[in-house]
């Protein structure tokens, strides 16, 4: 999903850079509310895990592969604002050190994976949580559903950007259909990895899972709530 330099024209790349800068700015403010002494180390771990897992391209048939985007996974574990920061750090290191994802396309990639991937994934997760039974075991399932939807959503967002500023005359409907088709398959891998990762942390430390906070009545939470009321 990493967009290289040259796919999009300069005005579109500048526009996505502005969108990414605004989004990351908001995330820097929002993440302060999400991060606590207990959850901050998890944010570092999530960024590291997303980087490592993005190296693991899995085959999806016909000579194509896909890798985790990690937006929904990160949002469910550490909160959506912090997740945007995790993805931004991963994309920054990938672009600067590993030449993966263009530098003029950094704003585009942050927009696609750090904003669309994270926030669509998180919104679908919340919607799924609202429908599923209120118990901890629903959390990994809802996360997987959010992860599944987030990948074709990012693919659609790329297609829209390409229709606006793509450097080749490709029919929007053809591009969108092809992108969404392949990325729906990749979304199945995204859902599987997200389910396993969220399930393993929810099984050991559900109190650390941002998307399960309302289900865990730990003493720490009670203290925080009492403090908020006082």
């Amino acid at each position: 999903m990493h967009v290289p330099d040259g796919f999009l024209d300069a005005p579109t790349s500048l526009a996505t850079a502005a969108i990414a800068a605004a989004g990351v700015g908001l995330a820097l403010r929002g993440a302060r509310r999400e991060l606590s002494d207990a959850t901050a180390p998890l944010a570092g771990l999530v960024a590291v895990f997303v980087f490592a897992t993005q190296m693991l391209n899995f085959p999806v048939g016909a000579g194509t592969s896909g890798h985790l985007l990690g937006g929904a996974l990160a949002a469910v574990l550490v909160g959506p604002f912090t997740a945007t920061l995790c993805l931004t750090v991963v994309l920054l290191i990938q672009g600067l050190a590993f030449a993966d994802g263009g530098l003029t396309a950094l704003g585009t990639n942050i927009t696609l994976m750090g904003l669309v991937g994270v926030w669509v994934g998180y919104a679908v997760f919340r919607a799924a949580r609202a429908v599923l039974p209120r118990r901890t075991s629903s959390v990994p399932l809802a996360a997987a559903i959010g992860a599944f939807v987030s990948v074709p959503a990012a693919a659609l967002a790329f297609s829209v950007l390409f229709a606006i500023g793509g450097q080749a005359p490709i029919e929007f409907s053809t591009l969108a259909a092809t992108m969404i088709g392949w990325h729906t398959l990749i979304g199945l891998g995204e859902a599987t990895i997200t389910f396993l990762a969220v399930a393993s942390i929810a099984a050991t430390r559900p109190d650390l899972v941002y998307g399960a906070r309302d289900l865990v009545a730990s003493t720490h939470d009670l203290e925080v709530r009492t403090g908020a009321l006082a």
Binding site: H2, N57, T64, F158, L175, M179, I186
Partner: peptide, 17 residues
């Protein structure tokens, strides 16, 4: 890991951009 092009690269080759 699979050495095949990822979804975006594959589509870019297929559609010629």
């Amino acid at each position: 890991a699979s050495g095949h092009p990822d979804g975006l690269e594959f589509v870019a080759h297929k559609l010629g951009f």
